[in-house]
């Protein structure tokens, strides 16, 4: 594989994306988590790729508003990859669904990997050195911590963004030239579905706390559901939401509905 030299346009887009990517956690919320940060990071790429193509632009912005959550450094790798994919999406080489699937499949494992590298390892090392110096009243401890943990992450964000882009471009070219895009999309969707399933198990929770008293015996309703399969309520909730969205229900309605159900349920002692 020959080393690709990035054009001036690509370099400037990547630089803007790098700056934008620091807003990973902007307006972090439980519905879409890092979606807003991703949209802001992708904005320079979308603007440069789609230009006057309003319909394509709209679709791309909507695409990058979907649920997203990973570690702040891995975030940049995936953003770089998405830049490459969006470029080929405009040329019709990559269907939009592939981008969704690849994002969904990458966020879970990268989050786990990078959290343990940075949060559980690098931060502990940096903080260890920092604590030693600071407890003696030395301000260098703070600076070393910022340098080791913060600045290093920023530098890696820059490197991984470019890496994601170059890898993405060459990978997509290889797949496209062999005419396997359809197959690749299906494979990515399989991995994506599995990862969303795994994330459903770990993050969606229906905290039912409902006990029905019938005479002497009391029935814990959550146990009844868990007897069918542990966590079946989380799966049911996610599938219900998907079914409603496919039926054309607006997310606003769903979110307000969930809020109402939760408050009424809590008042009635169900939660």
């Amino acid at each position: 594989m020959e080393k690709r030299v990035l054009s001036a346009e690509e370099n400037s887009v990547l630089k803007k994306m790098f700056i934008g990517s620091h807003l990973v956690f902007t307006c972090f919320n439980m519905t879409k988590m890092e979606a807003n940060g991703f949209t802001i990071t992708m904005a320079p790429a979308i603007e440069s790729i789609y230009g006057d193509d309003i319909e394509g632009k709209k679709a791309a912005y909507a695409r990058h508003q979907s649920f997203f959550n990973t570690h702040a450094v891995a975030f940049n790798f995936i953003a770089g990859l998405c830049y490459a994919m969006e470029r080929d999406c405009k040329e019709g080489k990559v269907p939009g669904q592939t981008i969704d699937a690849i994002k969904a499949s990458l966020m879970g494992p990268t989050a786990g990997m990078f959290d343990s590298i940075f949060f559980n390892c690098l931060r502990v090392i940096g903080a260890g050195i920092g604590i030693g110096l600071c407890s003696q009243g030395n301000i260098l401890g703070t600076l070393i911590f910022i340098l080791l943990y913060g600045v290093l992450q920023s530098v890696l964000k820059y490197i991984l963004l470019r890496l994601g882009y170059t890898l993405g471009t060459s990978f997509i070219d290889t797949i496209f030239n062999s005419g396997l895009m359809g197959v690749a999309t299906r494979s990515a969707s399989i991995l994506g579905l599995m990862m969303v399933g795994a994330m459903t198990a770990t993050t969606v929770n229906v905290p039912l706390n409902w006990v029905i008293n019938v005479g002497e015996t009391s029935v814990v309703v959550l146990d009844l559901f868990d007897a069918i399969y542990p966590g079946i309520l989380s799966v049911g909730l996610v599938l219900l939401m998907m079914a409603l969205i496919k039926k054309g229900k607006r997310p606003t309605i769903l979110i307000i509905g969930l809020l109402v159900v939760a408050m009424l349920g809590a008042a009635a002692g169900i939660f």
């Binding site: 919320n29 439980m30 519905t31 879409k32 988590m33 979606a35 979907s66 649920f67 969704d100 969904a104 579905l193 969303v196 994330m199 459903t200 993050t203 969606v204 929770n205 229906v206 905290p207 989380s234 909730l237 996610v238 599938l239 219900l240 939401m241 998907m242 409603l244 969205i245 496919k246 997310p251 769903l254 979110i255 969930l258 809020l259 939760a262 408050m263 349920g265 809590a266 939660f271």
Partner: peptide, 16 residues
């Protein structure tokens, strides 16, 4: 409870 169920909407959109 509402907070822990909100994520289901995000996953629902992604899954669809």
């Amino acid at each position: 409870a509402a907070g822990s169920m909100m994520t289901a909407v995000g996953f629902g959109i992604l899954l669809s």
